[in-house]
Amino acid sequence: MSRKIRLSKQQQRQIDRRRRVHSAADDSLERGIVVTHHGHDLLIEDAAHQLLRGRARRTVGRLTTGDRIRWRRDEQDNVVIEQREDRRNLLIRPDAYGKKKMMAANIDQVLVVTSALPWMNPEVVERTLVAVLALPATPVIVLNKADLLPTLPESDRREIEETLDLWTSLGFEVIRTSVKSGEGIESLRNRLREQITLTVGLSGVGKTSLTREITPKADQAAIGEISAFNREGTHTTRASTLYRFPDGDGGLIDAPGVRDFPLETVPSDALAAAFPEITDAAAYCRFNDCRHLNEPGCAVREAAETGEILPRRLAQYQALVEARNAR
């Protein structure tokens, strides 16, 4: 009589892991990417860029837009997602109740969309830049509704122009767009080619209108199928949705409006990249571990006093560092 071997939990996990690796190499599993989801139902794109509806096994875990997956058809010809490939990155956002939710995965770049009207607080944009750099991904700042700039009061227009010039001087790419006039649309399309790009920005900045301008004529049939799947109007923003471009492998992820990103665990290199003027000045501080608070010989504070660094930028940097160190 054979004896049943009992495995420890650790041994069982090791076996399960090997099985997953073996399955990943199985030619019977197809490759795909998550386009959007509605509850437990998923809309995926296969290797031939066809849209398919399916469900994932519980062992796969939660999936989000942009996840690379492996799938097969079962005996009833249903699409079954068997595995999720490792993520390059994952963007998290808090919902209306403060609960963290997955927004998208495997992002190459992020369009940080603001607008001439309503003009977004620059600190909101800069916090978003930190979150994007922490992924890591490449941020691109978009000033939408640029056609409204000449209609604004001179003081408002000057503030916007100075802020855009500052971001440009710090090395961030800034593209001005207008759905109404067509300004910058072609430049933006060229920037999106061959990239998986996520759009973020507060409600009202014209993010979805911009997505419609860039993607709708690309493949109306696919967009109609996505809209029907989500049971919403065209270009729903209740769930992140990937819209593909027909002339390449790139795509644009339209996502719900985001007010803020959690930055308590942001790595130091992301902070350094988001505040390069502070990083450069810090090289001249008397102490290598200078926190730029009350230490003598602080070159960063001196630069802020002379106007080489904006005081609000230094205050924002210090607040982010303090929040990270408080954890």
Score class of each variant (00 low, 15 high):
residue 36 T to H: 01
residue 37 H to A: 10
residue 37 H to T: 06
residue 38 H to M: 10
residue 39 G to F: 03
residue 39 G to R: 04
residue 39 G to K: 12
residue 39 G to L: 06
residue 41 D to P: 00
residue 42 L to C: 10
residue 43 L to A: 03
residue 45 E to G: 15
residue 45 E to Q: 14
residue 46 D to C: 09
residue 46 D to P: 13
residue 46 D to V: 12
residue 47 A to C: 12
residue 48 A to D: 15
residue 48 A to F: 15
residue 49 H to K: 15
residue 50 Q to I: 06
residue 50 Q to A: 13
residue 50 Q to C: 10
residue 50 Q to T: 14
residue 51 L to I: 11
residue 51 L to K: 14
residue 52 L to W: 09
residue 52 L to D: 01
residue 52 L to T: 00
residue 53 R to T: 15
residue 53 R to V: 07
residue 54 G to P: 13
residue 55 R to A: 00
residue 55 R to Y: 08
residue 55 R to S: 04
residue 56 A to G: 13
residue 56 A to W: 05
residue 57 R to G: 04
residue 57 R to V: 02
residue 57 R to L: 15
residue 57 R to D: 06
residue 58 R to C: 01
residue 58 R to F: 01
residue 58 R to E: 05
residue 59 T to H: 01
residue 59 T to V: 03
residue 59 T to L: 03
residue 59 T to D: 09
residue 60 V to A: 13
residue 61 G to H: 14
residue 61 G to P: 10
residue 61 G to I: 10
residue 62 R to L: 13
residue 63 L to Q: 12
residue 63 L to A: 05
residue 63 L to V: 07
residue 63 L to N: 04
residue 64 T to P: 12
residue 64 T to H: 05
residue 65 T to E: 05
residue 65 T to R: 02
residue 65 T to D: 11
residue 66 G to A: 10
residue 66 G to P: 09
residue 66 G to Q: 04
residue 67 D to M: 07
residue 67 D to R: 10
residue 68 R to P: 01
residue 68 R to A: 13
residue 68 R to E: 04
residue 69 I to M: 05
residue 69 I to C: 07
residue 69 I to L: 09
residue 71 W to E: 02
residue 72 R to L: 07
residue 72 R to Q: 15
residue 73 R to A: 03
residue 73 R to E: 08
residue 74 D to P: 09
residue 75 E to W: 13
residue 75 E to A: 15
residue 77 D to K: 10
residue 78 N to L: 11
residue 78 N to K: 08
residue 79 V to K: 06
residue 80 V to P: 11
residue 82 E to H: 11
residue 83 Q to D: 00
residue 83 Q to E: 12
residue 83 Q to C: 00
residue 84 R to W: 08
residue 84 R to Q: 15
residue 84 R to T: 13
residue 85 E to P: 00
residue 86 D to A: 15
residue 86 D to Y: 00
residue 86 D to N: 03
residue 87 R to C: 01
residue 88 R to L: 13
residue 88 R to Y: 00
residue 88 R to V: 00
residue 88 R to F: 02
residue 89 N to E: 11
residue 89 N to L: 13
residue 90 L to D: 01
residue 91 L to Y: 05
residue 91 L to Q: 13
residue 91 L to C: 11
residue 92 I to P: 00
residue 95 D to C: 02
residue 95 D to F: 07
residue 95 D to Q: 05
residue 96 A to V: 11
residue 97 Y to F: 08
residue 97 Y to I: 00
residue 98 G to M: 06
residue 99 K to E: 15
residue 99 K to I: 11
residue 99 K to V: 10
residue 99 K to L: 08
